[in-house]
Structures are given as structure tokens and as C-alpha cells.
Design a protein around this nucleic acid. Structure first.
Lengths: 197, 197
DNA sequence: CAAATGACAAAAATTGACAATTGTCATCAG
DNA sequence: CTGATGACAATTGTCAATTTTTGTCATTTG
């Protein structure tokens, strides 16, 4: 392990623990230091500031989304259409499950992710890349007729935002159903055949 | 004018003026009363509470969106596909223009609308009804093949949320372009031909 | 009698003094 | 020389006291 990497790791773990326990607004650098039995000044040897710690935690959280989705991208057993549907539904379910199981914690991660704009942008690029791969597969298999898989992937991610974006998933009140998502997906998938993108 | 309607109207006008000037968090019933030279207790003869005033203002604001869109719905000159595209783009532009022209004021209206959940729900039903009409026209004209125009309308409104929802329109940072919206719309419109909904 | 007042209790917002937190850095320990 | 400390100024958060605002209602006005 590279020099200092272990300390970085310990700090992140302690930080995440405190974040889960007390939420983002009561998250204190001094408390992280105390939990580790070190002076708070020392934390700054490993992270430039509080934000850098939160960025890293947000990054790890988002990786727990793209991880499971990658299996759907790589699992080449089903048709591309089925995988695309499954990918979107899985994204929707992953977010929903976390939001329902522990709304407090979900809002915590949502808040820190929202503050880490670059981290989120990278996450979105990753999601688009995954979707683009499924679309490319479908085109190569003759299932669809798509000139620009990346453009199509962006269009589909944008079009399904309502179903999986944390801002909507954590909204109070009635949520859209999977059936709603499938209606939208059916239209989009039919569109992929037609060569418009 | 029905009894008391004039007073209601004057109160709403004064309230909106204060709201525009000082924003939603500094909006005070007592100030509305003072602006009209009446005691604040008298306001409650016309509105059950502060929320009722804000609901009404939100309702009027949202009506300024559906109004212009209705012209696209009713103007039967172009093809349904063109009108559907124009309708979504118009919705996007209306929101964007307001958000860009005066971000502060946009956030004010957004905040009060967000608090008036029933008013927003009604607005969304209205939008769906407008879209459904365009879709019904397209189906009757043989342009598309849609069994349930309302379902299709919902699916399309959901799919374009990212482009016109106030929460996204008022987000800092880069906004999706009209070209992005058109990519999504092309897929959706192609889907309408295929009879999947 | 419809329209308006103003006094009132309860709730909510504001203030300001005080405490805690952040981030830096000169210094220390091994 | 790397890792850690603790004292420090500046910023940010807390909380109880105080003020303002809300919503009601018995009473007044024209």
C-alpha cells in the first residue's frame, strides 16, 4: 500500500461511520480525528479539506450503483432489448431500495453527492458508457439500427431520469411505478429500431 | 363581480408584488395588509390562511405555462409529430426563459409551487391532457398507432421531465440543449408509430 | 349586516452572546 | 524526513431570550 494510503483509508472509514450515524450537517472533522485518536490537524495531511473527504465517500457510494449494473451490461445471454430494460429497472430499483430502506441515510448520501458535482458528472459518464455498450451490442446483433450509441445512450438516460434520479426517488408522495417506466422504455426501445439516432 | 371577489383580487395583487420583491421567506401577511392599508385580521375574511394565498398565486403562475401551450395543441396546421415536438420544446423554453431572465423570481415561484402539491398535481394532469390530445390527433390522422393516448402522454411527459422540470431547469451548471431534447423526442415519436402503447 | 378592526394566545423567526469548528503552521517525535 | 501535534485566527454553529407573525374572535363601523 502506497505511503499514507492506510491512514487515508482509516480516515475515510471513520468518516463514513460518523456520517451514517449523525448525518451530513453534524459531520465534524474534529470528531473524525477523535474517533481515530489523532489531532484534527493531522487529517489535513491526508485530505486537503472536509470537502475532499466527502467527495471520496460520494464516489464510493456511486460505485455501488455502477457495480451491479455492470453485470447486466456484461451478461450477454439475453437480447439487448431485455438487457436495456433490465438495466434501467435495476438502476431504478437500486435507488428505490436504498431510499426506502433508510430514507435518512439516503438523503445523507444524496446531499454529499449533490455537493460533489465533478464526482456526479463522472458517474453519469460511466452510466452513459454502460448504456452505450448495450446499445452497441443490440446494433451489432441486428436488433436495432443506431448510428451513434453514445447519443442514444444519453437520450435514454435523460428520458429515464424521472424514474431513477435521487431527487425524484426521495420525493415524498406517490412514486411512478415500474409499469410507468416500462411504458416509457417501450417507446424508446421501439425508437432504437427506426434509425432516428 | 361576486361579493368580496374584488378584495380577494386586491389582496392577491399586493401579495404577488411583495412576493416578487422580497421572496417567499420574507413574505408576511401583515405586510400584505399594511400595503393595502387594512388590518391583517381582515385578510382572513378572504383567505383561510397564508397557504391559501400562495396556492392561488402558484395556480396563476402555472396557468401562464399551459396557456401558450394550448395554442400548439389547438393549432391543427402542422403534423402531430411536429406539434408534439413543438409542444415539448415550448414547455422547455418557457421554463428556461423564466429561469434565465430572473433566477431569483423563478426560484420564488418554484418554491411556492412545490409547497402547493395539489395545485401542481392538477397542472400535471392538464399537461398530460394537452399531450394526449396531440397524440389522439396523430393517431386519428393515421400518423401513429396508439391504443392509449393518455398512457402515451404520461410516458412522454415523464420521459421529458429532465428537460423541463423546474428542479432541473434551475440547476446551476450546464443545461441540456434543445438538440438533446430532440434526440429523446425522436426516439419517443418513432416509438409512437410502433403500437407498443 | 357585511366589512373591518384590534387585542390576544400560540407559533415562528430573529438576535446576539457564546462555544465549537475549520484550516494553517511552527514545532516536535522517532 | 515522514508523521503527528497543538496553539491560533477566522469562520461557523448553537441556544436561550426576545421580537415578530399568525390566526382567532369579540367588538366596532358605516
Amino acid at each position: 500500500m502506497a505511503a499514507g494510503e492506510e491512514s487515508r483509508e482509516r480516515i475515510l472509514e471513520a468518516a463514513e461511520e460518523l456520517l451514517r450515524r449523525f448525518g451530513p450537517e453534524k459531520f465534524r472533522i474534529v470528531d473524525v480525528a477523535q474517533a481515530l485518536g489523532m489531532s484534527h490537524g493531522n487529517i489535513y495531511r491526508y485530505f486537503s479539506d472536509k470537502e475532499a473527504i466527502l467527495d471520496k465517500i460520494a464516489q464510493r457510494w456511486l460505485a455501488k450503483i455502477t457495480g451491479p449494473l455492470q453485470e447486466i451490461v456484461s451478461g450477454r445471454t439475453a437480447t439487448a432489448a431485455t438487457r436495456l430494460e433490465e438495466w434501467v429497472l435495476a438502476l431504478m430499483r437500486l435507488k428505490r431500495r436504498k431510499a426506502t430502506a433508510d430514507p435518512e441515510l439516503f438523503r445523507t448520501y444524496q446531499a454529499i453527492a449533490e455537493a460533489s458535482r465533478d464526482v456526479v458528472a463522472e458517474h453519469i459518464r460511466h452510466l452513459i458508457a454502460q448504456l452505450a455498450e448495450i446499445i452497441r451490442n443490440g446494433t451489432e446483433a441486428g436488433e436495432w439500427n443506431v448510428r451513434s450509441p453514445t447519443k442514444a445512450a444519453e437520450a435514454i438516460l435523460n428520458a429515464t431520469t424521472f424514474f431513477h434520479h435521487p431527487a425524484f426517488v426521495s420525493r415524498p408522495g406517490p412514486q411512478p411505478t415500474e409499469a410507468n417506466a416500462l411504458d416509457t422504455l417501450k417507446l424508446l426501445i421501439a425508437g432504437l429500431k427506426s434509425g432516428v439516432v
